[in-house]
Design a binder for these strands. Structure first.
Length: 514
RNA sequence: GCACCGUUCGUCUAGCCAGGUCAGGACGCCAGGUUUUCAUCCUGGUAACACGGGUUCAAAUCCCGUACGGUGUACCA
């Protein structure tokens, strides 16, 4: 094995859907590894049986498939360091916990959760904080205070126990973080963390260190919420006499209100999705929206996420995955948490939408047309329409609002537009315009334009008046692309029909107003 | 409470490490232009170094303090 190889991991616990902060952490891991020709592992940290959520692991896998983050090893791909699910590695951890006891770095503790709760409460009532540390451990029931015989007897009777780390009483330790630099902490403020639970499972701290070591992880890139645990983790590597990996603690994604980190529980209440994919809670049945279902392109989503906390140092903002890999560096990851900006997310999606081919967009749009019961879903026709309107859309769904009149005649006429543009003379002018249109055989945009403009000039009609009234009949509102392009697309018969229909609906202005 | 981390336009950020720039860009917003319409697009504008002290000829940049925010402080991860 090449010990200089870059190996990173993303290690979520399957307690629900992954939120965008988690996706970003995985993304930075991926970019960091790929930039340096390294590998990325997906490891599932399911040591807490109580918090297991049905479907969460599959959700995580689906989410990464959708957004294009590919793992080299993990629960799906397998690999030489498996299994990659901690519940399946259960047998591994116990040995290491006992090694720590034997080397004097850990000890048995027999205090029950209930006992500890009571101690905490009584301390609290005296306005003191209880921490299970070098001082307090001397007063409690553990292998440090018990005699050899008492200890043996408790163990023989299968008394439940946990294994705690024996935190040094008072020593300064220097830690290094790739993003934050040097951090100094005194162990006196730290507690004797539980490494191994009474249910026979390791806690995060133990499992994490053991697995990262066994899987030859070179860089641990994780959220800032882990920074306070870094001293413990460093001490654990030292206790095992293992070489510790490099650490990088990423700034958190914050709630837009500016208090607290983004969490799974934020669901839909923020006004934008916090999950990559839609999620249905298996217990409550509650549905939370996802970026995929909201119409975001995966590459836009990734681009947007990458720029939230990292920047290339120049003014380039649009990156595909390959470009991100090429440009990424940990030095350019920021230190402070960032709030998500839904407007900017929409802008990113717009940028990606306009670069997609018309044919590709048509493929995505046709199902929407079918759901609207549109009869003409010919892909060439749809693609042409999309080419005319995509500049104005942020999402595929938006295209309908910008193009419905290519597919169906207006059901109603925008009242404001009617009031403003349907003048006294409009009825007669449109009636005459229809007669002119009827005479055109070469019904192409440019030909219609030439003929109508000539007709307008010869009859000394106002271009604006005629065109706006005409647009009203065809589109139903004062919006949309070049009008001659629209009528050429919908064809002569449909155009004439819409004029007839409009003349009936709108009538002469006098008859409306009086 | 204690520990650690952080703080540049409303938001994402450049600049800080190696002090000297009208503190730059993007989103948003506003105005003008283009368009027979709407949108796009183009041009312009708006708006920030948390505060106080120190070092220095010179501080967003280095040092100290304060405030504010965040994370952690579970037999959760």
């Amino acid at each position: 094995m090449d010990h200089n190889k870059i190996r990173v991991r993303f290690a979520p616990s399957p307690t629900g859907p992954l939120h965008i902060g988690g996706v970003r952490t995985a993304l930075y891991n991926y970019l960091f590894a790929k930039k340096q020709g390294g590998e990325i592992i997906l490891r599932i940290e399911d040591t807490d049986q109580n918090r297991f959520v049905e479907g969460a692991e599959q959700y995580i896998i689906d989410a990464f498939n959708w957004c294009g983050i590919k793992f080299d090893e993990g629960v799906v791909e397998g690999g030489p360091f498996g299994p990659y699910r901690q519940s399946e590695r259960k047998g591994i951890y116990q040995k290491y916990a006992f090694d720590l006891i034997n080397s004097g770095h850990a000890y048995y503790a027999f205090d029950t959760g209930k006992e500890l709760d009571e101690i905490r409460k009584s301390y609290e009532s005296e306005k003191k904080t209880f921490i299970y540390n070098a001082i307090e451990r001397k007063k409690l029931r553990n292998s440090l205070t018990l005699s050899q015989e008492e200890l043996q007897s408790l163990l023989n009777k299968d008394t439940p126990f946990v294994i705690r780390f024996k935190m040094p009483a008072n020593s300064d330790i220097i830690l290094n973080d790739l993003i934050r630099g040097e951090i100094k902490v005194n162990t006196g403020v730290l507690d004797d963390k539980i490494l191994f639970k009474s249910d026979g499972m390791p806690t995060y701290h133990l499992a994490n260190i053991v697995d990262d070591h066994l899987m030859e992880v070179s860089h641990v890139i994780r959220g800032e919420e882990w920074l306070p645990s870094l001293p413990l983790h460093k001490l654990l590597y030292d206790a095992f006499d293992w070489k510790a990996p490099e650490f990088a603690h990423l700034p958190l994604l914050l709630k837009p209100e500016g208090n607290g980190k983004l969490s799974k529980r934020d669901g839909d209440r923020l006004g934008f999705p916090v999950f990559p994919l839609q999620w249905k809670d298996p217990k409550s049945g509650e549905i939370s929206s996802g970026y995929r279902e909201d119409g975001y392109f995966p590459d836009a989503f990734i681009n947007m996420l990458a720029l939230l906390g990292w920047n290339p140092g120049d003014e380039k903002e649009l990156f595909n995955m390959d470009e991100l890999v090429e440009a990424f560096s940990m030095e350019r990851v920021g230190k402070s948490g960032s709030k998500f900006d839904p407007d900017k997310a929409r802008w990113f999606n717009h940028q990606y939408l306009i670069t997609k081919t018309d044919d590709y967009l048509a493929m995505l749009f046709i199902p929407i047309l079918k759901s609207k019961k549109v009869s003409n879903t010919d892909s060439t026709f749809v693609a042409t329409v999309i080419g005319m309107v995509k500049e104005r859309a942020n999402f595929i769904e938006d295209i309908w609002d910008h193009s419905s009149f290519f597919f169906v005649a207006p059901e109603s006429y925008d009242p404001k537009a009617v009031k403003k543009r349907w003048k006294d003379t409009s009825y007669d002018e449109m009636h005459q315009l229809k007669l002119v249109l009827e005479g055109i055989n070469d019904f192409t945009s440019s030909n219609i334009e030439t003929i109508l403009k000539t007709w307008i000039e010869e009859n000394e009609l106002g271009t604006g008046l005629v065109m706006n009234a005409f647009r009203l009949l065809i589109v139903g509102a004062l919006k949309g692309p070049h009008l001659f392009d629209i009528v050429a697309m919908i064809g002569k018969d449909e155009t004439l029909n819409r004029i007839d229909k409009g003349l009936i609906n709108l009538g002469r202005k006098e008859t409306i107003n009086i």
